[in-house]
Write a protein that binds this DNA or RNA. Structure first.
Lengths: 135, 135
DNA sequence: GTAAATGCAAATTGTTTGCTTACTG
DNA sequence: CAGTAAGCAAACAATTTGCATTTAC
């Protein structure tokens, strides 16, 4: 049995969380690294990753596996809807109220405990541009 | 303006698609590589990746960015629901009928064109096991 | 015959880990 | 002062790419 880990406070973690909360985008670890480095020039990328994992573990932030194999981070843990732009790939927070219903049969096969909806569409920028070249 | 690419037929692509369609799991490129190699021992992993991209481009299969930075592939392009097991991480096809509703405001900000629901829960195996150690 | 697809290996990219030092509680 | 966190660099793993050769149309 594993013991519960105790967390200690760190300036780096504070800054990472602050910077992530500051933006409404969903930056990757590397993007965030760039942002944080402006305030803490000596921070290392490894620290950013470690803290992002830790913050996600604590439920302070949310990790998103994204297309292209990168992980994006959302600093806003309260539920809100997302839309992925099918043109540029960005993840956009949207206002839309979503309702999901599904039948959740009581069975030994599986048990559904929660859900997430991902919406796809066009973001403002791409919507107002003409289509890019084929592909 | 980019010209439309013309596809040529290849045995490797056929086998990759066949093997992917054969299973109801959602293998990674590497897993699929193992499956395909039984029939085409000389195929290379690069070819598998190239063909999976190409098949996804054609809409024959679907790519899933997964937690852990891997991409999973679904050979069954007709819509069906998925559940991700929060314990073991596998993606399970489920029977549940899902209905999603959301308001899709007509605005310049964005335009929603489609959606996907991801369900989370426990798969049969994990449901019938006791919890693993903390964390 | 031309362009697309393959096999192979090397390169790239995102992420994790090991280790020593610094810092928190 | 015990154990967590940082910084740095090396290691890893998934995926992509360059190139010479083969294959499809």
């Amino acid at each position: 049995m594993k013991y519960k880990k105790t967390y200690r406070h760190s300036r780096q973690r504070d800054v990472i969380l602050e910077e992530l909360r500051k933006v409404c985008a969903h930056p990757t670890a590397n993007t965030l690294y760039g942002m944080v480095r402006k305030r803490l020039p000596r921070i290392s990328l490894g620290t950013v990753y470690r803290n992002l994992d830790l913050l996600a573990e604590q439920g302070e932030i949310v990790k998103f596996p994204c297309a292209g194999g990168q992980t994006c981070f959302d600093g806003n843990p309260k539920k809100h809807a997302h839309m992925r732009c099918t043109q540029c790939g960005r993840l956009i927070d949207i206002e839309s109220k979503i309702t999901v219903s599904y039948n959740n049969p009581v069975t030994d096969e599986y048990e559904i405990t929660s859900h997430r909806v991902e919406l796809f569409g066009l973001c403002a920028k791409c919507k107002n541009k003409q289509q890019p070249f084929n592909q």
